[in-house]
Design a protein around this nucleic acid. Structure first.
Lengths: 193, 193
DNA sequence: CGAAAATTTGACATGACTCAACTGGAGTGG
DNA sequence: CCACTCCAGTTGAGTCATGTCAAATTTTCG
């Protein structure tokens, strides 16, 4: 369980055994069922959430009521609404579970306490945001440069294990096209490629 | 000149006069002409660039040779290719100037020296990236939720001073549509709104 | 001024969306 | 085991928006 989280930390920072124990004390394990919300629009995002098991989906709803998937969160990923978390303002996003999901939650107070006691953790979270930022930029340029079909391919090859667990309609939403369009795109690609 | 940079720092961090002087010593002023490149695809991005005056444009070129604008950089903004800067790999982006532009450049070595001498600067750059990340996320959701016309409106209202200085064809590229489409969108909007 | 770039417009093809119906599989309850 | 429902996925037909190619016009820049 918690070993996965420690491994995640060790990617960017070296912690002593005592420090690791202190870190773990601040994370609260929580279980969610398939279809259950971790965060709903209008709520405050008061925790950073590390996914131990399962799969989440972060999405927003537009004026017409259509859902738009912002990201997926499989095991070993961090999910949450950073904007709401940092600014203490109500979130505009929903996070729900595509599978039964287990998370480890870190509250803001805990995070600040950990920063005070183990300063190198600030570095860890900085790198986390840095990587998230570069992913976001890569997604923007991918949207500008590539067709929906190419981006579907990209998604499948980038997350080979995960895409099988996500219904195509959710991937379509993530790519910014309708499920019907993606279905037709897939058919065209399977005949040509 | 440098006062603008200090003001930029003061938004997120408090520096003593001595610290401010030390910081300024590490920034190298540089001037570029309109149409001149600050960074070209394939080069290493070895500096963080603070724009003192002028306007830059960061873009990538796809396989068909089409340019796709990733971002604009007016006065008081930071531009560069973070990925190349951090990973010491050749950049995929081009940065050129839409106007004669003056920048203050911070090399990686200088940045690290400053981090060592003034640790709170790490905090400053973390916040910079945090904000950039949230902007990138906002752009992604905007692309998913809104039409090109709405995003044009959004752009114009978000950057009222700047959009007048940017040719519409560049804004079209930033929005992910052709210049012709944006022209038609604008016409439709001016008659309806 | 003269050249280059930006914008607009037209005509046409293409691609995506919408609405709707149908298929097939997973899960449920009798 | 079967009938039923629910949901994801597919397919069809029609509509609309956008891209492409091309040309005319206006603006900007050297």
């Amino acid at each position: 369980m918690s070993e996965l989280l420690l491994k995640n930390f060790r990617r960017h920072v070296v912690l002593t055994t005592q420090e690791e124990e202190l870190v773990m004390l601040h994370f609260i394990p929580k279980k969610y069922r398939r279809r259950q919300y971790i965060l709903q629009e209008g709520q405050m995002s008061r925790t950073e959430n590390f996914i131990v098991k399962g799969l989440t989906r972060t999405y927003e709803v537009d004026e017409s009521g259509n859902e738009h998937v912002i990201s997926f969160g499989p095991e070993d990923w961090w999910v949450g609404d950073l904007y709401s978390f940092l600014s203490d303002s109500p979130s505009a996003v929903n996070i729900d579970c595509l599978e039964d999901t287990e998370v480890l939650q870190l509250s803001k107070a805990s995070q600040e306490e950990l920063f005070a006691k183990i300063p190198k953790l600030e570095r860890f979270f900085r790198i986390l945001i840095q990587n998230a930022y570069m992913s976001a930029l890569a997604r923007i340029t991918s949207t500008l440069k590539k067709t929906a079909g190419d981006r579907y391919d990209e998604f499948v090859h980038k997350y080979p294990q995960i895409h099988q667990r996500i219904p195509d309609r959710q991937i379509a939403s993530y790519l910014g096209v309708t499920a019907q369009s993606l279905s037709r795109i897939r058919r065209r690609m399977s005949t040509k490629a």
